[in-house]
């Protein structure tokens, strides 16, 4: 079977990575054992969840907190702790598995 990994003539020299920010194609959501659930009815768009998230996994569009980028969220739960309105709950990931 041919490897999907590239050969030495196909990669930049010196270990350089030329594709800035390409870690985004690596999904860390699978690490999660707890999933953040947002109760939007209480959310005041203070953006603390977005600001404190170590994984840039809070989805904000047009200055409005929409929810979480589950492809990346590792489920640490910092967002739930820093939320002043306590409108983020961490729930077991198992519950969401099909």
């Amino acid at each position: 079977m041919k490897s999907k990994l590239k050969g030495y003539k196909e990669i930049p020299i010196g270990g350089l990575i030329l594709d800035a920010g390409n870690a985004k194609t690596y999904k860390t959501g699978g690490w999660r054992s707890k999933r953040p659930i947002l109760d939007k009815s209480n959310c005041i768009n203070c953006y603390f969840c977005w600001f404190y998230c170590p994984d840039n996994s809070v989805d904000v569009k047009d200055k409005d907190v929409k929810g979480f980028k589950l492809d990346y969220c590792k489920g640490c739960g910092i967002c739930a702790v820093v939320c002043p309105k306590k409108c983020i709950k961490m729930e077991d990931e198992d519950k969401f598995e099909e």
Partner: peptide, 15 residues
């Protein structure tokens, strides 16, 4: 610093 890094959940460094 984008998503997709592999620091532990809850790590202070990326924040």
């Amino acid at each position: 610093l984008t998503s997709g890094h592999r620091l532990c959940p809850g790590c202070g460094a990326p924040i």
